[in-house]
Design a binder for these strands. Structure first.
Lengths: 74, 74
DNA sequence: ATAAATTATACCATAATGGGTATAATTTCG
DNA sequence: CGAAATTATACCCATTATGGTATAATTTAT
């Protein structure tokens, strides 16, 4: 699993925490419904600014994070 | 300044830490030279997977980070 | 100051994102 | 178990990101 699930999972989790449906989140964030769906479905080639439009609702934004090496691959 | 300088600055800093030119970084990361340039120039609409191709060289990847509220807007 | 190296800007072509939407599949719940 | 809500898949299309490259501008170094 080359990671990439980060944003995907984050969207789902935060969205449900706020009890929003995909259409509701899309509307609130000002992005298309298709975008929300594709990201939650695991797409990794979406645009950074679009992701940030959504993360902003959660009080987050995309940034470089240190990749934690798993004990298994040392 | 709605942020957005994060990746831009990160690229520049890390690249210089490794003493790489833009063409060298582009080649190592497997992305186009234009991509490196546009990001370092402040573009915010680039693709997440492309950014990650570069961040990977530095041991980083894009992820949701909490937006720290500045004292000025409290 | 001049030459060399690095970075910035501009143009073209291609491929793919994102939006919209209709429909199917799945989940939720009464 | 069936109806309603939610989510997943598929298609069309306009916009745009990306790559390549040539050239200009800027920076670095001698």
């Amino acid at each position: 699993m080359e990671s990439g699930k980060k944003v995907q999972e984050f969207f789902k989790e935060k969205r449900k925490q706020l009890n929003l449906t995909q259409p509701e989140l899309a509307k609130k964030a000002g992005v298309g419904l298709r975008f929300i769906r594709e990201v939650e479905q695991g797409k990794t080639s979406m645009r950074v600014d679009k992701v940030n439009q959504v993360l902003k609702l959660f009080g987050y934004e995309l940034g470089p994070v240190l990749v934690k090496r798993d004990k298994t691959d040392l």
